[in-house]
Every structure is written in C-alpha cells, then in structure tokens.
Design a protein around this nucleic acid. Structure first.
Lengths: 218, 218
DNA sequence: TCACAAATTTAGATTAATCTAAAAATTTGT
DNA sequence: ACAAATTTTTAGATTAATCTAAATTTGTGA
C-alpha cells in the first residue's frame, strides 16, 4: 500500500511523462511537488525500491507498469470525485480540485466502483479530462489546442489544459462553456491572439488563453 | 489544523468521555488507538499544548471546548458519509465504518455542508447514532437498552451500541432492522436472555445481544 | 500505613518525509 | 574539448509519530 506522499509522486510523474518524452526529471518533479530536488531524489529511490518507477541516477524517472496502474487508479478516483462534486454537490469547476486531491486517496475498491455507477459511468471530468475505467483505459484525446486551429476552422470546446481556478473563472466570465462550438475568425500575427465566434457573438482571445483551450474538431 | 493522528485521538477521547465519567485515561486511550501508553502520553502533551485537551500528568484527559468542537465536527462528517455510503452507494451498514474513517478527515467546509444538504439533513446514521448539526448540536438520546426493558414493555429498535460488523451481520440474519417494534415477552433470570416479539414472530435474544440494542420507548 | 501492583511517564531510538549545504555528475557554449 | 553552468545526488539534521525499556507515581489491600 503506497503512502499518501508516494501516491502524490506517482500522479505527478504520470503527468510529467505525458508532457515530456524523457519522463520526469528531478527538478521538474520538485517544482510540481512544491518540494526540494533532494527530497525528490530520496523519494525516487524509495519508489524505485518498491518497483513503482524505473529510475537510474541522473537519468530521471518513468513509471513502471505497476506504478502506472497505481497512478491511473488515483487519477480515476480524482476525476470521479470531481464529477460528484460538480453534479451532486453544487461545486463549480474551479472549486473542485483541492477537495478531489484529498478524496482521491481514500482506499476502497467498492467505493470507487459504486461512485462510478452512481454517477452513470462518466467519461469526462468537469474540465473535459478523460476518466480512466477500472482497468485504466481511457479515450485518448483527438483534441487540439484552439491556438493551433486555422482561420475559418471550427470545433467543440472540449477541455482545458490549464485548470487553475483563475483560468476557469476567466472562462466563466467570458461565458466559454464546455461543449460550445467555437469558430476561428481571424488570427493576429502580431501577438498570436485570435478572434472567435461563439453563440453568434465575436470574442477576442489572447494567445495564452487560446493555448489552454482544447477543441474537438469533427 | 489538526493532523490525521490528532483528529483520531480527539475522536477517541470524545467517545471515552461519554463512556467514563473521569474522562480518557492513558491505557484506555492506548487500547482504543491500538498503540502504546507511552505514545498516548506524548500525544496528550501535544494536544494539551494546542489547547485541544485539558490534561494533567497522571490524571487522564478531557476535551477542551475547542477540542470538543473539533471532535464533533469529525463525528458529524463520519456519520454523514455513512449515510451517503448506505443510501447512495449500496453499502450495507456493516461495511461503512472503515471507509467513513477515511472520508471523515477530508477538509472542506463546503463539502460537509453540501453533503448534508444532498442527503436531506439526516438526523441519524445507519446505526441509529445521532448526527451533530453544523454547530455541533445533536439529539440526546432518550433511548434505553433492550436488556433494561421490563417484561411486557415495548419500543422501537433505534440503534446499536456495538457497531462491529459481526454484530450487525447477526442482526441482519435475525432480521432485526432499525425502526422495527420490539416487545419483551419474557426475561430469563438464569442467563439474562430474553424472548421478544417482532413482526408477530417470537425470537430468543442473548443477554449480550440485548445489551447492545437501543430501544426508543414511547 | 505501607508495600506492591497497576498505571503512567520519561528517556532514548526508529521511520518517513522533509530540509540545507556541499559534493558530484551532466550538459552546454564557445 | 573543456570550463562554466546546470542538474542531481549525498551527507547530515529536523519533525511527527511511534516504539521499548526503565523510572516514577498512584492507588489498593492486608
């Protein structure tokens, strides 16, 4: 049974592996875990001992098969709880993260299974991220970033890359809601901002924002 | 913010205070926490420092006002989660304890408030124990033990003193369900067992069982 | 009341997770 | 290719929660 801290490292390594080809290096992991590189090294040794990561000194770490299973289980629980909080307990999508961080560590096979059933086996969390099933399988996303869409192209707003409260609140303010159709009217070469059309209205979106909005093209 | 371990001690002290006039003594607390008396002493010093308990060497401990508030908050969360597990997630009353032990430590004012609302502000958990409200108030129980009922008396089965899985499963097997009316037909002086009537049927109940069944008399 | 048993505390060690400071390995730029 | 910069690891310390063994305090029964 992994400790709380171990579980959090596994999750962080999983996310870093998806972002960087070479896996999770010490400094990146330290930043993500809000800790010091020396602490990360200690933990990587421990996780390596437990066969949860493949780690060679100075080479960074990747999850082992076992580690990846564990990580996916935690992510599954995190996202199921997020759905629960939003759909049943009136939380908004920018409030769920910290609570789900706590709930994801509760250990009970039956709890996860029944929660999934109770929620109707959701496929996506409130931020559009896919929810792994009990075997750890999930939809690989055929989505692209709004910033990558050509002028004239369109698609459905299907997720966010940055799920910080401030970005989510910005989207709320702009009334940019999951599931809406967005069309790119014009790309501005100068600052890479874009003009979009949504609900028949025109909006101006910064490069930074566009780079954190996932679009599903048909 | 209290640590996980501190929260568990507060809860244990609360339960011991309700059982023993003098409060929680070191050995009793050690047994309840499945730890050694020396560890308990260390923790009591810490909790005393934090003004969560009143503790004098060799004199046992009682919760301070602040400690009692904390304890009641944890118990409130525990019992709300038990209701959730039974009513929404198909858990049986003998399965909920360990999971609720984990869920009770999740920190989120909003979570507790919304869970309570979602469940319809339940007054009792699945074992008939009262659920404190947000201010820590709860029904003091006017209930007595089945073992204390006179011959010919009757009442409603409204709770269990022992909520171990084995006792709860025994009750399930006997079809003794919360809310049913029970009448005492006969008390056997020899072994203090009793004969009861329930659903029109007669059952024989051991002294031990009768001593763990709460009855609400009208 | 006082000796002994029981309960409790103290002293000193251990483990997990963290830290700082220093050392070592790797990578990079010229 | 090699010196400097960056990254990573090691060494040694700290904190929280626990342990064992020994010492102390309390309380009880003769």
């Amino acid at each position: 049974m992994a400790t709380l801290s171990e579980e959090n490292y596994l999750k962080a390594i999983f996310h870093l592996e998806n972002k960087f080809e070479q896996g999770a290096n010490t400094n990146a992991l330290a930043e993500k875990m809000e800790t010091k590189p020396s602490s990360v090294t200690d933990m990587l040794k421990k996780l390596s001992q437990k066969k949860l990561v493949d780690y060679k000194k100075y080479q960074g770490a990747k999850l082992s098969k076992k580690g990846k299973e564990k990580a996916l289980e935690i992510i599954r629980k995190h996202r199921l709880w997020e759905v629960f909080l939003v759909e049943k307990l009136n939380f908004s999508w920018d409030e769920v993260h910290d609570v789900a961080e706590q709930l994801e560590h509760v250990q009970s096979r039956k709890l996860t299974l029944e929660l999934d059933r109770f929620l109707g086996h959701p496929k996506r969390d409130p931020h559009g991220d896919p929810i792994p099933d009990a075997e750890g399988n999930f939809d690989f996303n055929d989505r692209m970033l709004l910033s990558e869409l050509e002028e004239g192209a369109n698609g459905i707003f299907s997720g966010v890359k940055d799920s910080s409260a401030s970005f989510l609140q910005y989207l709320d303010k702009q009334e940019i809601t999951l599931g809406k159709e967005i069309a790119v009217l014009e790309r501005e070469n100068f600052d890479h901002s874009i003009r979009i059309k949504m609900d028949g209205k025109t909006k101006h979106i910064s490069a930074l924002a566009a780079n954190n909005i996932f679009i599903k093209t048909s």
